[in-house]
């Protein structure tokens, strides 16, 4: 609880703070559809500043402003709480508003499974999937296990290994369960609330292995304090190409989480199309490529209905599999 980033900040981007406010005056409510967009944009980030979701949103806003893609002001607001339930709940409540926009991450799919949110991932107007997050499977330097094969031997010999990840209703549990089942070893999954404690759980020798988002452990891998044994994405991870993928080792049914863009439910078709076209331009920009490289993300672009299908399929897939594992 101590480390909960509790915040609401009406946070204007620095550029916005300098920009002359006003000008466009009130066109007074209601979507004037042929002229879209003509009002300030409200970008809701469902997490606190500094997190993965926040960084992506601010990067996109930065590009929109730098390349003059959005004609009016953009306000970024962090609405943190309830693992995203509150932030996305706010966008959900803005049904029909073409100026209420947000970005998604793994919690977009898992939070509704866990809590009785009024919204479901399928309710929103889906613009596009930009990238997916996959995980790294890691052991500590002290373990001496540097390849996936060594790990499987070790795990089989030990009888039952202790592995860690974030939360229960989350992809980490599914990844550990699938890998153990398919490789033929037994594991006890130990859930953590915070990345920091997960990492020290591994470094202290309490855990045999963990899965983690790459961004949080890159420094540890680079310094040699952790060994990356496996990457759960289908394609090798940019920057860590030498780490084998789960697919190359013959493992299937890995799950990824979506980084995408959504509008409030029932946004007008014009607005949806305008954003699909605009975000397609955003992902062409060198700044976006830079962002992907820096964060070791694999581009995975799906627009409009394709994104809707992905969201619905992944969400129901997560639900069945977490139910199978007894987490729901």
């Amino acid at each position: 609880m101590g480390t909960k980033l509790a915040t609401v900040g009406v946070c204007f981007t620095a550029a916005l703070a300098l920009a002359a406010c006003g000008g466009t005056g009130g066109s007074g409510g209601g979507a004037a559809e042929e002229n879209y967009p003509e009002e300030p944009l409200e970008w809701t980030v469902a997490f606190g500043p500094g997190g993965g979701n926040d960084i992506m949103s601010r990067q996109i806003v930065d590009i929109l402003e730098k390349e003059d893609l959005y004609p009016d002001d953009i306000t970024v607001e962090n609405v943190d709480g309830g693992s995203g339930a509150l932030g996305w709940g706010r966008v959900f409540a803005d049904t029909g508003n073409p100026y209420a926009i947000s970005s998604t991450s793994g919690s977009f799919l898992t939070t509704p499974l866990q809590a009785d949110t009024p919204w479901q991932p399928g309710d929103f107007t889906h613009i596009g999937l930009l990238a997916t997050d996959a995980s790294l499977f890691l052991t500590s330097k002290k373990s001496g296990l540097t390849t996936w094969e060594q790990w499987v031997d070790y795990a089989k010999n030990k009888g039952k290994v202790a592995v860690g990840g974030i939360g229960v209703v989350n992809v980490d549990l599914i990844l550990h369960a699938e890998l153990a089942k398919q490789a033929g070893y037994e594991m006890e999954y130990v859930p953590f609330n915070e990345e920091g404690q997960l990492i020290t759980g591994l470094s202290s020798g309490s855990l045999d292995a963990i899965t983690s988002n790459p961004a949080e452990v890159l420094g540890q891998i680079e310094s040699g304090d952790m060994n990356a044994l496996l990457f759960t994405g289908d394609e090798p991870m940019p920057g860590l190409e030498e780490v084998p993928t789960a697919k190359s080792k013959g493992y299937t049914r890995m799950v990824t989480t979506p980084r995408g863009i959504i509008l409030a439910p029932d946004a007008p078709e014009e607005a949806r199309q305008w954003w699909i076209d605009t975000i397609k331009e955003v992902v062409q920009s060198p700044d976006w490529q830079n962002y992907l490289d820096e964060n070791n993300l694999t581009a995975d672009e799906r627009w409009g209905d394709d994104f809707t299908q992905y969201v619905e399929k992944t969400s129901s897939d997560l639900e069945t599999r977490l139910t199978e594992l007894g987490a729901l």
Binding site: G2, T3, K4, L5, A6, G48, P49, G50, G51, D54, I55, R58, E194, E195, G196, I199, T200, S203, A215, E216, L218, G219, Q220, E222, E294
Partner: peptide, 22 residues
């Protein structure tokens, strides 16, 4: 270690990422 030990350092860690530090 790159491990945030408290709420405040977790925000700083986010800041590091934004400033392009690993």
């Amino acid at each position: 270690l790159g491990v945030p030990g408290s709420g405040a350092t977790a925000v700083l860690l986010g800041g590091f990422l934004i400033w392009g530090l690993t």
